[in-house]
Amino acid sequence: MEARKMEETWKAVDEYFEEKLKTTDDIMDHILKETDDAGMQQIEVSKAHGKMLYLMAKMAKAKSILEIGTLGGFSTVWLARALPEDGRMATIEADPNHAEVARRNIASVELAAPVDVIEGQALDRLPKLMERGYSRFDLIFIDADKENNVEYLKWALKFSHKGSVIIVDNVVRHGRIIDDTETQAIPYIRQMFDMLEHDGRIESTAIQTVGQKGYDGFLMGVVK
């Protein structure tokens, strides 16, 4: 009962922020509805975290953004909104149905030009980004299958420059990150932290979060 009350409080606080800080609007609500109507899992970032990504891209003055894991384009649109007029964004999505929903959502808010939705497995598409005219990114957001987090992070570092911001979502998993007996996604997330422990190219931290999406967290780093 206590846990349920706590979750209700988290949700109410998110709703308070939504009202006071405008962490959503009609466009973003429409994207969420389109994603839901398409029968997709509601595993996108929360409204507050979507706006957080937007603000982080703004603070980083990002002109080029890479996203690994598009889903329905909710986080994609938040990030793309932060781009200047001459900015560019590439987002990679493995599921063709998800990619199509994302394209529709992005086009509906007139962001199709600066956003390149790339369909296919990320580890197949990342090596070919240079052929599409991408070389370095100012901000990289990783929110895809956790089994490949280490490889995604390696690619993120390859596509980074000094000052690039790298964000990885879902690194706490209801606190299971510290359970070394977990056999699902946790071992792969822990491998990523093991890599970061010894990699001198990036300064990073991890933040635990609660809210409408439950208890989780994200990793944030700046390339040195």
Rank of each mutant, 00 (worst) to 15 (best):
D25I: 09
G133K: 14
E15T: 03
V165I: 02
M56V: 11
F193Q: 08
G120M: 09
G214Y: 01
A48R: 02
H174T: 05
K158S: 08
I189T: 13
L139W: 08
R81A: 00
I65A: 05
L129P: 11
K20V: 11
T35R: 04
D199E: 13
W78N: 02
K51A: 12
E100P: 01
V77M: 01
E8S: 07
N170S: 06
L21P: 04
G87K: 00
A112L: 11
E7D: 06
D180P: 04
R104G: 03
R125S: 10
E34M: 06
A122M: 01
E7M: 13
E18Q: 06
Q41C: 00
G175F: 00
E100A: 12
L32Q: 07
A122H: 04
D124L: 09
M59E: 01
I65L: 05
T183N: 02
S64I: 05
S164Q: 04
D179L: 09
E85I: 09
M130K: 15
D29L: 15
E44V: 14
R4H: 08
S160F: 02
D124E: 14
V150Q: 09
L129T: 09
E7I: 07
H49K: 11
N148M: 10
G69I: 06
T23F: 07
K51E: 05
H161Q: 14
L219P: 00
H49R: 05
K128Y: 11
I178L: 10
G39E: 15
D116R: 03
V171T: 11
M40W: 09
M220K: 03
